[in-house]
């Protein structure tokens, strides 16, 4: 079983990202479970969502405390919350950032780090506003490319099926982000395939 945690801020679409990722993986024949951090949060506050992935039906119905992968929708969260909490050694972190993996020396070496300028890509595709772009679909495209865990086409199909507005622009953003993701960390070529 693989467990994943998505960090975002209230309103950025972290929960929807977790659902889209679960749907994409389900299309590929996996068993999935996705859920938000249980509680109540206001817009802008740090939030989290989770995805469990397995080849057999998932029985665990408790919180995710030791994820294998982390996705960070907002780079300012790196200083606000401990995004690596419980992350397994050698786990992966995908960050929405205009920087390169090498710009995160505290993470690199311990984890596999990837970056993608998802904000810029989302804004270019008119998703959300220029100051507050909605990056959840773009970053899923990048995740497909850098993790190898899910196919880009499955991600795009899930977006087309479940995103009610601007599905086309969201798919375009996912594809652009998949092409733009930068992988670094333990060893760039060591991209795992489950």
């Amino acid at each position: 079983m693989r467990e994943l945690r998505i960090h975002g801020r209230g309103g950025q679409g972290a929960v929807i990202a977790s659902k889209l990722l679960a749907a994409a993986l389900f299309h590929e024949g996996r068993w999935v479970q996705s859920f938000p951090a249980f509680g109540v949060e206001r817009r802008g506050a740090p939030v989290a969502a989770f995805v469990r992935i397995d080849e057999v039906p998932i029985r665990l119905r408790c919180e995710v405390t030791q994820p294998d992968d982390i996705i960070v929708l907002d780079p300012t969260l790196l200083t606000a919350v401990d995004i690596t909490a419980g992350l397994k050694p050698g786990g992966s972190i995908l960050i929405n950032s205009e920087g390169l993996p090498g710009d995160f020396p505290a993470l690199i070496g311990r984890f596999r780090v990837a970056t993608v300028a998802a904000g810029e890509i989302a804004a270019r595709n008119h998703l959300g506003s220029r100051t507050q772009p909605i990056v959840n679909t773009a970053i899923l495209g990048a995740f497909a490319a850098c993790s190898g865990l899910v196919g880009l086409e499955s991600v795009c199909a899930a977006i087309e099926e479940d995103v009610p507005q601007h599905a086309e622009a969201n798919v375009r953003a996912a594809r652009e982000a998949a092409a733009a993701v930068q992988v670094g960390g333990l060893a760039a070529q060591e991209v795992s395939h489950v």
């Binding site: 999935v32 479970q33 998932i58 119905r61």
Partner: peptide, 12 residues
């Protein structure tokens, strides 16, 4: 059904 563990958890 349980709050959140079912109500807000998506699965097939």
């Amino acid at each position: 059904l349980d709050a959140f563990f079912l109500s807000h958890t998506a699965e097939p």
